[in-house]
């Protein structure tokens, strides 16, 4: 009976473990791209686009005669590297600005709040398209743009969490004891908002993955020809008749990766939340 009750209250760790395994697999492909998919960019020019099942090409090839399976495995790198950098970068901005704004209030808070308002009034994907399209194309430029665009929601999140902690007795006690503001912010408040930050970090990785592959899909992220799931989908759109797997495989991979990252994020936030609220 005990175990039954447990199960109704918490998501079984099976889901979390499975998600972690899938994510680890994607991670291995991303790190060891050259080993996992050494022939990703080889163009089998004699073939052109072919359907699935031909010998040596399990999922067929694309319009340039590249193997869909190898290309998809190789795409793991741009699917993880950029989003992780986006999530970390925007969280660093969000953490610093949010902590200062939330603890100090006043003018700092006002300025940070307006900055967040301004960027949140526009859909981030739309802004990213505009900025990336006009400022310059390239994977890392797009990543930098996304860091800026993702930061307002992180600022708000951290600011809200800090403002929730600031009036608590343990913080007011620290102030009365004469502990310096920097120390209160980063030694007393920060550790207590880490659970929120960590869970949100993962959710942001998933969002950034979707955003980055959206931009690649529109031809704004990675350069043409680079192994990237969004780019593959864009190319695959024209090949739906000849080799639908050219679009379906990377499509499934994007959805799967984003889902497992989201699941891990949800699980983590629930677990950390319970740990924090447990007295």
């Amino acid at each position: 009976m005990k175990s039954m009750k447990r199960r109704t209250n918490t998501r079984p760790p099976v889901v979390a473990i499975l998600s972690a395994v899938v994510l680890a697999a994607v991670g291995v492909c991303a790190v060891g791209r050259e080993l996992v998919a050494p022939h990703a960019l080889d163009q089998d020019v004699y073939l052109g686009v072919v359907g699935a099942g031909i010998e040596g090409h399990l999922f067929g090839t694309d319009q340039l005669g590249r193997d869909i399976l190898q290309l998809s495995l190789a795409g793991a790198r741009s699917a993880l590297a950029g989003p992780i950098v986006v999530a970390l970068g925007s969280m660093v901005i969000g953490f610093l600005l949010g902590t200062f704004a939330g603890y100090r209030g006043g003018i700092v808070d006002m300025l940070v709040g307006r900055y967040a308002d301004l960027l949140l009034a526009l859909p981030s994907v739309l802004l990213a398209i505009v900025v990336a399209g006009l400022v310059g194309r390239g994977y890392w430029i797009t990543v930098a743009v996304l860091i800026v665009l993702f930061s307002p929601s992180d600022v708000r999140l951290v600011r809200g969490a800090v403002m929730e902690q600031t009036p608590r007795p343990y913080i007011e006690s620290a102030r009365l004891l004469g502990i310096r503001p920097m120390r209160i912010m980063f030694r007393h408040i920060a550790p207590n908002i880490v659970p929120i930050v960590v869970a949100n970090l993962l959710l942001n990785v998933a969002f950034a993955l979707v955003a980055l592959s959206s931009l690649s899909y529109l031809g704004l992220g990675v350069p043409p020809g680079a192994p990237d799931w969004g780019r593959q989908l864009a190319d695959g759109r024209a090949l739906l008749g000849d080799n639908p797997l050219a679009a379906v495989v990377p499509g499934v991979l994007i959805i799967l990766t984003a889902t497992v990252v989201n699941l891990l994020g949800d699980w983590l936030s629930e677990t950390l939340d319970r740990k924090v609220t447990a007295r």
Binding site: A206, G251, I255, V261, N262, L263
Partner: peptide, 25 residues
Amino acid sequence: VAASVAGVGAPGFAVGLILLYVFAL
């Protein structure tokens, strides 16, 4: 809940392409 997690993580264009493939083509 599991389905909605997958849904939140699915970019519209990927879903769109799969729908196109299945229901239109």
